[in-house]
Write a protein that binds this DNA or RNA. Sequence first.
DNA 1: AGTTAGATTGAGTTTTTCTACACCAAAATA
DNA 2: TATTTTGGTGTAGAAAAACTCAATCTAACT
Lengths: 295, 295
Amino acid sequence: MPVSPPRPKGPHLNALRAFEAAARLGSFSAAAEELSVTPGAITQHIKTLEAWAETPLFVRSARGVALTPMAETLVPEFTRAFDQLGLAVHALREQVAPNKIKLATLPSLAQYWLPARLGKLRQIAPDLQVSVIALEEPPNLVREPIDMSLFFTSDPLGPNDIEVLRDRIFPICTPDVAARLTRLEDLRNETLLRDSTWSNDWEHWLSAQTDLGGIASGGTEHSLFAVALEEARHGGGVLMAHEALVQRFLDSGELVRPFAGIVDLPRKLVLHLSPKMARSDQLALIKDVLLDTVQ
Amino acid sequence: MPVSPPRPKGPHLNALRAFEAAARLGSFSAAAEELSVTPGAITQHIKTLEAWAETPLFVRSARGVALTPMAETLVPEFTRAFDQLGLAVHALREQVAPNKIKLATLPSLAQYWLPARLGKLRQIAPDLQVSVIALEEPPNLVREPIDMSLFFTSDPLGPNDIEVLRDRIFPICTPDVAARLTRLEDLRNETLLRDSTWSNDWEHWLSAQTDLGGIASGGTEHSLFAVALEEARHGGGVLMAHEALVQRFLDSGELVRPFAGIVDLPRKLVLHLSPKMARSDQLALIKDVLLDTVQ
DNA sequence: AGTTAGATTGAGTTTTTCTACACCAAAATA
DNA sequence: TATTTTGGTGTAGAAAAACTCAATCTAACT
C-alpha cells in the first residue's frame, strides 16, 4: 500500500495514436506513412508507451513487428477512440466550412482527368470550393481532414465507395511513331514507356494479345505518369496509357492508338467518401459530375 | 479549385483534449486543473485550435468563457472520443496489472481513515497492491489512470458510486480542555480549530444546537485537517471533527467530546469507481473492507 | 474606489517530437 | 554462398510543441 505518489499522468496522446496506427496496420513503417513521420518516430512513440505501461506491446523480429497477444485485445478499443476523434474533427470542419471540400487523388488524375470535371462542377455550383491534394497512396479518410479520395483499386467496394470507371489500358504514341508499327513485333524496336506505379501494365496488355512474342519488359520507367506521357507526346516511344488519362489527346489527334487491343483491368477508379461526406447535401451533385451523368 | 497543397495536417491532439475539457467544464481554469497545467496553457491550446479551424470556439468575457453555438454542438462528439480513449487506457492498465489499484482520496482520509482498512485488506488479499494518491479534488476517473476515488459529496449517487458513510461532525478536544467546557458559551474563550476545506462546519454544528449564543466564527483555520488535529491533540483548542477521522482518538481516550451534540450532515463519503473497476472481480472484497461489513 | 475571478500575453524554458543517418538482422534473391 | 532488400533500432542534434511565470486586462462584486 504505497501512499501518495504524485498525481499519476496518463500516456502521451501521440504515443497512443502511433500505437493504434502501428497495431492496425501491422507495421511501424506503414504507421509512419499514415502519420507522415519517419519510422524512427514511431519506434520512439511505441517505446515511450511501452515504458509507461511497463510491458512490451510488440514482438520485434527482423521481418517486422507483431502485437503481443495482450496488446492485440486492446486494439479495437483504441481504434474506436481514434475513429470517434476523427469523426469529431470532421464534424468540426463541416460546421466551420460546409462547402470547402478536400479531395485527394493521384497526381496523374489530378492533372489529366479531374480538371475538366471540376470546371464543370464550378459552373454548376460556384460556391463549392474543392481543393485537390495529390497523393501517391489513398489517405485514411476517417482520420485525416480530407473529404473524398479518388484512387484505383481492385478491392471490393465498401459502403462509402462509388465506382467511377473501370481501368482500361492500351498503348498510345504519336501518329508518326504509329506509322512504324504494323505488327506487335514492331514494338521490339520502340521504347516502351511506363509509369512506376503501374509498372507491369505492359505485361498485362501484351499477355492479353493473341499473338505474344516475348516482346518483353525493357523500356524506360518514369515515376510520374505525366513525365512518361510527355515523352510519348514528343515521339519518344510507346506509352501504356489509361483511357481516363489520355482521352483528350486521342480526341485532339495528338496521340493515336497503334493497335486496336484494349484491356479491361479488374481495377476500378473508386471515389471514397469520408463519413462526413457520405451524408453531405452536395454528394449527389459531385457524383453526377464525376460520373459524367450530369444532364 | 486550388490544386495540390501539401498534405493537410489534423489539429494537435493535445489542443483537442484541452478544448474538450474546457468545453465540458465551462471554464479554462477548471480545464487547467483537470489536466494539471496552468490556465495559460489552456488559452494557448484553444488558440491554436481556433487558428487551425479558422473560427472562434469560445466567446470570451471578463467573467469567463462561453462556447459559441457552433462549438456547442461539437462537444458531445469530442467527449465521446476522449471517454473512449480513457476506456482504452483503463483496459490497457487492467491487462498489464490487474491487481495494481490506484485510489485517490483526501489527505485526511488517507491519513486517518484508510490505513486501518487497507491493512485489513492486505491481510485478506495480499496480492492486491493498492496505492493511495492524496488529492484535494476528486479526479475524473474516466480520463485519469486512477481506479477509485473516495471523497465527500452531497450529490446524488451515480451508477458507479457506493455510499461508504454519512458525515457526522462534533467538537473534540483533550480531556483537560474539556474540563473547562460545561456550557456552549464557554466556547467563546477557546480557540475554535477548523479545516479550510470544511470551513463552515462550526457554523453548521452551532446552528444545530438548541441554544445558540452567537459564539461566532473566529478561530484558526488550517489548510490541512491533520494540522488542525495535531493542534487539538496538544490542547490548542476545540476542533470540529468528522467522526470517521477521529474515531481512534476517541477510542484511545486521547481526545473527548465536550458536548453531546452530533450533527448528521447531508454530505456522504462516496466510493466512486472507474468504468474498469466497476466490473472488477476484486470489487466485492474491497467494498466489504471499506464498508466494514467484512465477515 | 478597491478587490476579485478568470482569462490573456509574451518571454523564456523545458519537454516532446522529429529527422538524419548509420547500423543491424533475417529473408529473399542471385 | 554472396548480395540485396526489407523493416526496425539507436543516437545526436534540431525543430516544434507545450508549459510556466509574472505582468496585465476586464468586468463584476464589495
